[in-house]
Amino acid sequence: MENLDVQNHLVKSLEEIRELVGSPHEAVVKKSIAMIDEQAKSYIEKSSMMFVASSNERGQCDVSPRGDAPGFVYVANAKQLVIPDRPGNKRVDTLSNILNNPHVGLLFIIPGMEEVLRVNGRAVVIKEHPVLENLKFKDKAPALGIVVDVEECFIHCPRALKHSGIWEHDSWLPKDRRPSSMDIFHAHLKINGYDVK
């Protein structure tokens, strides 16, 4: 399969984008705040799903899903959040990225709600800090946590989730038509020469 030839179709300036898209309404610009206010805190405390976007020192990006009981992300104060690092597959993509590039983007979701909360900031990885006691799961505090210093926070319009119909059960594919995660996993191992037995 050949790569797309896009060289004669590249957008090379923000001015070109603005010509096609237009400018945002003043309210859309001013909805962004540099803190976690009570409204944002309430949203985060009800969220059971979030995504962490990070990138390494070369700018290679990664987005990692994180989910737990509502309120699993701890709002330490108006400027800081703490995300528990629960045991997983041990790839530590997000953690290793943060060590090299502290900039992260967070996307919080409340099931059934079409508006999402976006938070951007700078992160560090911590261990053995008393704040981790606030993030216990089955009476066990995580070994590691991610502290995010909040630089930007805003509510995002419902268009994407509304158009996707993500919360509408009738729009979901039947189980027998959904992709098999195990088939994908094994196919990717095979591409990389790993023998699945």
Results as ranks from 00 to 15, higher is better:
Val63Gly: 04
Ser42Met: 13
Lys41His: 07
Ala53Thr: 02
Lys31Gln: 08
Ser47His: 06
Val63Gln: 02
Val29Ala: 11
Ser47Asn: 08
Arg58Cys: 05
Glu45Met: 11
Val28Met: 14
Val28Asp: 11
Ala53Tyr: 02
Ser32Val: 15
Gly59Ala: 02
Ile33Phe: 06
Glu57Ala: 09
Ser42Thr: 13
Ser42Tyr: 10
Ser47Glu: 03
Glu57Leu: 14
Ile36Gly: 03
Gln60His: 00
Ala53Cys: 06
Glu38Ile: 03
Asp37Lys: 09
Cys61Lys: 08
Gln39Lys: 12
Asn56Met: 10
Val28His: 14
Cys61Gln: 14
Ala53Asp: 00
Phe51Tyr: 11
Met50Trp: 00
Glu57Ile: 11
Asn56Thr: 10
Ile33Ser: 04
Val29Ile: 12
Lys41Cys: 13
Phe51His: 04
Val52Gly: 02
Lys30Leu: 11
Gln60Cys: 02
Met49Phe: 11
Ser32Ala: 14
Glu45Thr: 14
Ser48Gly: 12
Val29Trp: 09
Ser55Tyr: 06
Gln39Asn: 07
Lys46Phe: 10
Met49Gly: 14
Val29Asp: 07
Ser48Ala: 09
Ser47Thr: 02
Asp37Asn: 14
Tyr43Leu: 08
Ser54Asp: 02
Val63Asp: 00
Ser42Val: 08
Tyr43Gln: 01
Ser47Ala: 08
Ser55Thr: 01
Arg58Phe: 07
Val28Gln: 14
Ser42Glu: 12
Met35Asp: 12
Lys46Val: 12
Ile33Met: 03
Ile44Cys: 04
Lys31Met: 05
Met35Cys: 15
Met49Trp: 07
Ser55Ile: 01
Ser47Met: 01
Val29Gln: 07
Asp62Tyr: 09
Glu38Asn: 04
Asn56Glu: 08
Met50His: 07
Cys61Phe: 04
Ser47Val: 00
Glu38Asp: 10
Met50Cys: 05
Ala53Gln: 03
Pro65Ser: 14
Lys41Asp: 09
Ser55Asp: 02
Ser48Arg: 06
Asp37Leu: 05
Ile36Ala: 01
Met35Lys: 08
Ile44Pro: 02
Ile33His: 02
Lys41Ala: 14
Ser32Phe: 10
Glu38Leu: 08
Val63Arg: 10
Gly59Glu: 02
Glu45Phe: 08
Glu38Arg: 11
Ala40Pro: 05
Lys46Gln: 09
Glu38Pro: 07
Val29Gly: 15
Lys30Pro: 15
Ala40Thr: 11
Met35Gln: 13
Ser42Ile: 06
Gly59Leu: 01
Ala34Met: 09
Lys31Phe: 01
Ile36Phe: 10
Lys30Ala: 15
Ser48Met: 10
Phe51Asn: 08
Val29Arg: 10
Met50Ser: 05
Lys41Arg: 06
Glu38Ser: 09
Val63Phe: 03
Tyr43Asn: 01
Ser48Thr: 12
Val28Lys: 12
Ser55Trp: 01
Ile36Val: 04
Ala40Met: 02
Asp37Ala: 07
Ser42Trp: 12
Gly59Pro: 03
Met35Thr: 14
Ile44Tyr: 04
Phe51Pro: 10
Ser64Cys: 11
Pro65Trp: 05
Glu57Trp: 06
Gln60Gly: 00
Ala27Leu: 15
Ser47Phe: 00
Pro65Thr: 05
Val28Pro: 13
Ser32Cys: 13
Met49Pro: 10
Gln60Glu: 07
Ser64Glu: 00
Gln39Leu: 12
Tyr43Lys: 00
Ser64Ile: 08
Glu38Tyr: 15
Asp37Gly: 03
Pro65Asn: 11
Pro65Arg: 09
Ala27Cys: 14
Pro65Met: 06
Ile44Phe: 04
Glu57Asn: 14
Asn56Ser: 14
Asn56Cys: 13
